[in-house]
């Protein structure tokens, strides 16, 4: 093997067929995370299958009850699409605070949720890391873990999932449409990512040779009344240390009928908080209710030293997001 191989996929069928056959193959579209990994030799693929020529994956279809996004839609195309802004504020807001304008012009919605963790040890190929090299140990557990997860971790991995988009999609009950040689299936977005457990190298519930073809996002009052808040160490161009996608549906009296809360920057996968949603339901939409419901966000959370502040930050992020959303309703 003399260096990286590259091929243009002639068709979706050809792409998934080749992907299934080559253990070292990866799909490339936006390439914004993949090229970082190539350059830094972090799980570098051996063969790239370029699907950017597959025009069928490029569509945004706005229907009565749902919106379909093709995997090749670029992040900025979603942000600039008026109807989506109105239908899914949380998704558009999450994308608008993702990376930089340059990256958003390249990155696709198909690839974004599959980007790899920013865990400092995963990104330095010379250090032990179970996610990158199974069995070598997790350096982050007792290391520099300020950005690592307090939710969903295991003794093998506490890497934070980095996508903002995925958090909003999880909150809004989106589905991923997956394609392989065996046809198509759909998967709840919340089930797209796996917990690290004792196999942190397996990040996705994708079968071998399966790719994300697109998404289905249900249109609902909840989705229209949603919001994304991102907390980070600098003003822009940085991943979250904590984030929340929230959605509320109220009755005429201002009582919460339905609520959706998912958080990012704190968990090993996009993290839905059903206990917070439950605590909001049937209660008036007001700051004290938000604060008390948000305090449940850290149930089951485990801190590892440098990331202990997230125990304090997470509930406040959720409460702030709910308050900001309430201001708008």
């Amino acid at each position: 093997m003399s260096g990286l191989g590259y091929a243009r996929a002639p068709s979706l069928a050809g792409a998934v067929e080749a992907l299934g056959r080559h253990a070292g193959a990866e799909i490339v579209a936006g390439g914004t995370d993949l090229l970082q990994r190539l350059e830094e030799e972090v799980l570098p693929p051996e063969l790239l299958i370029d699907i950017t020529g597959l025009d069928g994956l490029r569509a945004i279809e706005v229907g009565e009850s749902e919106v379909r996004l093709g995997a090749l839609v670029r992040l900025n195309e979603v942000i600039d699409y008026e109807a989506l802004r109105a239908a899914f504020p949380a998704i558009v807001e999450a994308l608008a605070v993702t990376a930089s304008p340059q990256v958003r012009n390249l990155a696709t919605v198909g690839g974004n949720p599959l980007q790899k963790t920013r865990c400092l040890y995963f990104r330095d190929r010379t250090t032990p890391c179970n996610r990158r090299e199974p069995g070598t140990g997790c350096s982050a557990l007792q290391g520099r873990n300020r950005i690592n997860a307090i939710l969903g971790g295991s003794e093998h991995c506490i890497a934070t999932h980095p996508s903002d988009f995925a958090v909003a999609m999880t909150a809004l009950d989106a589905k991923a449409v997956l394609a392989s040689t065996r046809g198509e299936r759909s998967l709840a977005f919340a089930d797209l990512h796996r917990l690290p457990g004792d196999t942190p190298q397996h990040e996705y519930n994708l079968r071998r040779g399966e790719i994300i073809k697109g998404y289905i996002i249900p249109r609902a009052v909840l989705a229209r009344q949603s919001h994304y808040l991102k907390v980070r160490d600098r003003g822009e161009f940085e991943w979250a240390i904590s984030s929340a996608a929230v959605a509320l549906e109220l009755d005429m009296a201002g009582t919460i009928v339905r609520a959706r809360v998912a958080v990012g920057g704190v968990a090993t996968k996009p993290w839905r908080l059903p206990q917070v949603e439950f605590a909001l339901r049937g209660r008036p939409a007001e700051p004290a209710v938000f604060a008390s419901a948000a305090s449940l966000a850290t149930e089951g959370a485990v801190a590892h030293g440098d990331n202990a502040y997230k125990l304090r930050l997470l509930p406040r992020t959720v409460a702030r997001a709910l308050n900001e959303l309430r201001e708008r309703l």
């Binding site: 920013r118 400092l120 990104r123 330095d124 290391g143 520099r144 160490d233 940085e238």
Partner: peptide, 18 residues
């Protein structure tokens, strides 16, 4: 961000060294 076990700066880039 210096790792005292490995002897290296872990955020050696422009995305994590802010």
């Amino acid at each position: 961000e210096w790792d005292e076990r490995l002897g290296r700066v872990m955020n050696a880039n422009l995305a994590e060294y802010l």
